[in-house]
Design a binder for these strands. Structure first.
Length: 816
RNA sequence: GCCCUGGUGGUGGAAUUGGUAGACACGCAGGACUUAAAAUCCUGUGGGCAGCAAUGUCCGUGCGGGUUCAAGUCCCGCCCGGGGCACCA
């Protein structure tokens, strides 16, 4: 009996379908188990062999749990909004909904091929109005809520209004400490103040508390493309596409107040089963630190500069200060003599992305000409510099630099010849900064001889006593930007009236995405929706939500996907509860995971669900890398001496030959054996000695891995590849074979190293394919793909099949 | 630059807590079966040196140090690949 995988797999897949074998009910006596794959974006390129790795692992586990008597929820759906479909629409005029549907159909067909046990009756798509109705609804709940620091949870904004009416905001200060009520200059207001404020003022105040709120933020604005760009679309201050200048631009943006949840997000990590690496990444992203804010007076100036430091004990070692180039003080304090230098430096910084600024190894900066005064020693005047390594958005946008104790400060001081004060005695060797906390302080006035750990408290107490600073907990995490100037995303259910944002009534949901004629951006960096008169005439918000909106809560919708009264019924969410096993890549380590944890916590606080962590256990599958293959091309141009007539040859050199030839040409005393051989070959081809031949340098080109067997190129297929571009090439072989070069890289279409699972399933069957993917090694590990090994797994399954039939047909258990 | 992660034969990988490095598989080589091929089965396979051979011997887990009776595993310092760094999702 042959192992006929085609008919076996077809038969069973058909049977599963007809019997709805994997349809799962919300009513069951069995214990529940929820196995989830990370939400895929249905890209136009389709699945490659890297994608299903996690899906196969979760599928096996879901089947295992089902056999163990669990009621297993194992759904799949699509994160269907996103930039690639919009970009495709701009370039080809195809509506994103159309291209997305097409991509999903391909995706589905590819998934079905592999024989997964998904309950497809629960499929969701974020771009369906019946889905994003509830994304909009949750947004409205966030908009209508605030974070009560006293109770450490989200509460209705109506409750806050009652508090304001009774006592003002003295027990609930503005989350943004710098905020002052417009026209009143108040940080704190009382009940009478609140009653005296007009509607707009009240709404502006409430906006400062809402969990989903509107503010202003800087974006990468490209005038020539008329659009806002992501950081990685900006390279050296110009757009990746087209190389146009990019500048920072302030735009009105929506945000989620995730910073209020920083502590809860940290604490929650202790209750979930994620890898330590994953917890580290999230902890570092949140970036909680404790220290102090300290005011420094500026010499001969009214203004003062506030720095945030985690090391207040080192205050007597401050040799200079650095403030962010975009800090508002820069304009006020820069001296005339330094103005030009500062302006030039700011121009330079404006051309750089935040990423470039942080990654820069070179030390750059400019002196403002101003000096700050050390509050503990007024004879110490400290030069104030600006530099790109200080970011306006972190801390106070200003740091006190202690070069003997901080490596970056030390290099800065060396670069600009700023004298260094040693406050840690023999712990400082003069050549490297030492960030120790164990030294006894010296050169530190009233702190001399005090251990550093003790001095931290002493200094904080002293500055608080003198009213020039305070103890401060700081977070690196910023509020999450929640709007995009794009078309293909969820519209905000918000209307603008007299500059105030009002929520649409929930009965008006879904607010559906209107048809547009053009997907290009609106005026002044607004999204495409700003081009639609019917939209703008209703004063509707023209931004749309970002990709992570729909994916922040999709795991809840799977529990009750057809519910048109609620995002998911409480009975369903109570039954399914947390995702028991979540499988996906580490690329989502901070973004998606933090946002969905935030949404879960907010929905929990507001009483809509009964758990405040979405994912009980997380497993990160490794990435399957591509194994690229290369051919080596050398062009030969033969010119006839008397006529100037040109003949061009493409010579494809086998890997070994290319290496030897390259070495040979680089060596001065070489015999040029290989070069001479090639020269001879070209002359033989020409059958004429009247030619002068010039060779181009050897170029390495990616070649499609699907026409390479191991390392050996299939020359006939190569000649037909890319519209027969290389049909007339000459091949220089080794032992009669063309051997390709190889390298491990990211799997990507442009590198011609993608392998389509469909072909492998057709050739070997889904079981072989699945087994091989699992056989590649631990699921958490990254590894390069190599199709060669699949033969062995296939032979194993064939052997198993054969042995099974031999045993059952010849043994005593006759013919079973 | 910062955070996370990985580096072991020709290849993917194995080696439980510091205790025989290279399981298993691919590939390759040789053999059996066959008119022949495919399929299947058997044997060998980290590298160097010595030996007709059995075998012996030295080297060997990215690099350089260290701890230990013993290091792929622990410590220190590097190098290289991958992921993320807030508008790719």
């Amino acid at each position: 009996m042959d192992y006929n995988f085609n008919s076996i797999e077809k038969k069973w897949q058909q049977q599963w379908k007809e019997s709805q074998a994997y349809k799962v009910s919300n009513d069951s006596e069995k214990p529940k188990y929820y196995v989830l794959d990370m939400f895929p974006y249905p890209s136009g390129a389709g699945l490659h062999v890297g994608h299903p790795l996690g899906y196969i692992a979760s599928d096996i586990y879901a089947r295992y749990k089902r056999l163990k008597g669990f009621n297993v929820l194992h759904p799949m759906g699509y994160d269907a909004f996103g930039l690639p479909a919009e970009q495709y629409a701009i370039e080809h005029g195809v509506h994103p909904a159309v291209s997305t549907d097409k991509n999903i159909a391909t995706f589905r067909q590819q998934l079905d091929n592999i024989g997964f046990c998904y309950d497809w009756s629960r499929e969701v798509r974020t771009s369906d109005a019946q889905y994003y109705k509830w994304t909009q609804w949750i947004f409205l709940q966030l908009f209508k809520s605030w974070f009560n620091r006293k109770t450490q949870k989200a509460e209705s904004i109506d409750e806050l209004v009652k508090v304001f009416e009774a006592e003002g905001n003295r027990h609930h200060p503005f989350p943004n400490e710098k905020y002052q009520v417009a026209n009143f200059g108040l940080h704190v207001f009382n009940a009478a103040d609140w009653k005296s404020f007009d509607e707009a003022t009240r709404q502006h105040i409430l906006m400062e508390y809402r969990l989903a709120f509107c503010g202003y933020g800087e974006v990468n604005w490209c005038e020539a493309l008329g659009t806002v760009l992501a950081n990685d679309e900006v390279i050296n201050g110009v757009s990746e596409r087209g190389g146009h200048p990019v500048v920072k631009k302030k735009l009105r943006q929506w945000y989620l107040r995730i910073t209020e949840y920083a502590d809860r997000l940290l604490q929650g990590l202790q209750t979930v089963d994620f890898s330590e690496a994953m917890k580290d990444m999230q902890t570092n992203w949140i970036g909680k630190s404790s220290g102090a804010e300290i005011e420094f007076q500026i010499a001969n100036h009214k203004a003062n500069v506030v720095v945030y430091t985690t090391r207040p004990d080192t205050i007597m070692g401050v040799d200079f200060m650095v403030i962010a180039p975009e800090h508002e003080l820069v304009r006020q304090i820069t001296t005339e003599a330094q103005q030009k230098e500062v302006d030039d430096y700011i121009d330079y910084v404006n051309s750089r992305s935040e990423r470039e600024r942080m990654a820069e190894k070179r030390i750059t900066g400019a002196f403002t000409g101003a000096y700050a005064v050390n509050p503990f020693d007024e004879t110490k005047h400290i030069p104030i510099w600006i530099s790109e390594y200080v970011l306006a958005g972190y801390g106070t946008g200003a740091i006190m630099a202690v070069p003997c104790g901080d490596e970056r400060d030390y290099r800065f001081a060396k670069q600009f010849n700023i004298p260094i004060t040693n406050i840690i005695g023999e712990h400082f060797n003069g050549e490297d900064a030492n960030a120790t906390k164990d030294a006894l302080l010296s050169n530190s006035g009233f702190l001399n001889g005090v251990p550093m750990r003790e001095a931290m408290e002493t200094v904080i107490n002293e500055i608080e006593k003198r009213g020039i600073g305070k103890r401060k907990v700081n977070y690196r995490m910023r509020d999450a930007a929640f709007s995009r100037q794009r078309y293909w995303g969820e519209p905000f259910p918000v209307k603008w009236i007299n500059g105030v944002a009002y929520a649409l009534d929930e009965s008006e949901l879904p607010l559906t995405l209107p048809e547009v004629d053009s997907y290009s951006p609106g005026p002044e960096g607004e999204g495409p929706l700003a081009n639609i008169p019917e939209w703008t005439s209703q004063n509707l918000e023209t931004n749309t939500m970002p990709g992570y909106a729909g994916s922040s809560w999709y795991f809840l919708r799977y529990m009750d996907p057809q519910n048109d009264q609620e995002f998911a019924g409480r009975k369903a969410t109570d039954y399914w509860n947390q995702v028991d096993l979540y499988i996906g890549g580490t690329e989502h380590a901070v973004g998606h995971l933090l946002y969905s944890r935030l949404w879960t916590k907010a929905l929990y606080d507001l009483g809509y669900i009964g758990f405040d962590e979405p994912f009980k256990r997380l497993v990160n599958q490794g990435m399957i890398q591509g194994s690229s293959r290369f051919v080596y091309r050398m062009q030969a141009i033969a010119t006839k001496e008397n006529t100037g007539e040109n003949v061009e040859f493409q010579l494809m050199l086998s890997s070994d030959y290319a290496t030897k030839l390259t070495d040979e040409l680089n060596e001065a005393d070489s015999d040029f054996k290989h070069h001479a051989a090639i020269n001879k070959l070209v002359h033989e081809k020409l059958q004429d000695k009247e030619y002068i031949i010039n060779f181009s340098p050897i170029v390495r080109l990616h070649v499609d891995v699907n026409i390479v067997d191991g390392f050996e190129l299939d020359i006939e297929k190569f000649k037909q590849w890319r519209n027969s571009e290389y049909a007339n090439a000459e091949f220089i072989l080794e032992d009669g074979k063309y051997i390709c070069g190889a390298e491990v890289e990211k799997m990507s279409k442009t590198k011609y190293n993608t392998v389509n699972p469909d072909e492998l399933v057709n050739k070997y069957g889904a079981d072989t394919f699945r087994m091989y993917e699992m056989f590649l090694g631990p699921v958490e590990m990254s590894k390069p793909w190599d199709t060669k090994g699949i033969e062995g797994v296939h032979r194993f399954l064939k052997k198993l099949w054969r042995l099974f039939y031999k045993e059952t047909n010849t043994g005593n258990r006759s013919g079973r």
